[in-house]
Design a protein around this nucleic acid. Structure first.
Lengths: 234, 234
DNA sequence: CATTCGATGTCGTCT
DNA sequence: AGACGACGTCGAATG
């Protein structure tokens, strides 16, 4: 990894055109060839970047560029899309290279997959007497997160989201529409739906209710408490 | 901006829990207080980070941490959500600080808004004889990108996307459902829809067709060619 | 290889 | 502040 602090201007040309006027910035050149341009604020996201696979070519600045003080010019080109990032260096303030080695990677806990696992183990927290039939129940338009059966023996499709948005309700609606055409599932009565999320947006709740879909706000920590603590990662 | 290359382990606790085992990484401390942890690959996105507003506290490592070689311990806490990032430093390899000043910011050109402007000027490229009634036609559930009239004088709602996904079809469907309840618009006949995008995904096309919504693939460059070249930014 | 879908999405914009 | 859509979304999993 090479770190360069420099006064520079940057032009990106690809899915859109973008220009960064002359200013002092951090330029990161990673081992995989990728390039990141960071300013001192506006965190997380670089101002400009190029993802791998890409290559960096050192160019001789055009005459007019050189005349206004461009010392170096790097052209970063994406190998597949042809997107380019043109970095014009006016003054290098810092330049250092470091060998970081391979990173062992990030371990995560608490994403939607875990929520699904926990709810699959404790379906009754969604509705009294609900039991699991199967997780990732396959349909022609994708898998239903949880297929359950209620106390009366009727099929219940559960869609799980971390954040319950209008999109999730639309998704569950499409599943229910399809499932209710299946005679095997609807023998005893219509398949109903439960929209389960850690947080449900008001508009999503209104739409779900309007369509006869139940909403369930899920308490992740409480669910985890129900689970065997020895299974926790942290 | 402070740049630290160090052997470190990191733990994030907030919307989820995440752990980074001991390895050599780049730690960026920005002027606004934000912190970014980068490895030498997996570009663009940091492995771990904290967005502003947040504060960094230097802690004395716990005894057991110190005994395994932790020299410094930084706790970054988000001011609002309380999310924390705990960085344990085992060895500092590089440490430098730089004054970058304020960045003038990024200038962008050429996204969906531009596409909408171009199509508003050339609605006939979507369908023979189509004319614009108004852009951003207001409805109770949000503005319709373009409201047009076809050769027969019937109302046509146009939804514009850069990438035509299933979500866009759902959105247009909701608009059409609402618009078709308006007597003023449906006097001559039902309001129809056109789903316009630079690229339309197969599933979206199927859904749109199934609902009687026309699809139009838009050629951005050709449209720009129709436009006055002197209006271009680049 | 293409496609789909989640994300500590992030970011702008408007109510 | 909350809601909503766009994003150079990115990135992983999957067929």
């Amino acid at each position: 990894m090479r770190l360069v602090i420099a006064r520079c201007s940057v032009d990106y040309s690809g899915r859109l055109n973008a220009h960064l006027p002359l200013a002092t910035r951090l330029i990161i050149l990673k081992a995989d060839g990728s390039v990141l341009i960071h300013s001192d604020s506006l965190s997380y996201k670089p101002l400009n970047w190029m993802s791998p696979p890409c290559s960096v070519a050192i160019e001789v600045p055009e005459e007019d560029a050189a005349s206004v003080g461009v010392e170096e010019q790097w052209r970063v080109t994406h190998a597949k899309t042809g997107d380019t990032l043109l970095v014009r260096i006016y003054e290098v303030i810092h330049d250092s290279a470091h060998d970081l080695g391979v990173d062992p990677g990030l371990q995560k806990d608490g994403v939607e997959k875990h929520l699904q696992e926990l709810l699959a183990e404790h379906p009754a927290t969604l509705a009294e007497g609900l039991t699991l039939v199967r997780r990732e129940f396959p349909t022609a338009i994708g898998p239903v997160d949880l297929m359950c059966r209620d106390a009366a023996g009727l099929s219940v499709a559960v869609e799980i989201k971390r954040r319950g948005d209008i999109d999730g309700v639309e998704q569950l609606t499409r599943y229910l529409e399809l499932l209710n055409r299946d005679p095997a599932l609807t023998r005893k009565g219509a398949v109903t739906g439960i929209f389960a999320a850690q947080e449900i947006k008001p508009q999503a709740r209104v739409l779900a209710t309007d369509r006869g879909i139940a909403c369930a706000v899920v308490d992740y920590d409480a669910l985890r408490g129900l689970d065997d603590p020895s299974h926790r990662l942290f």
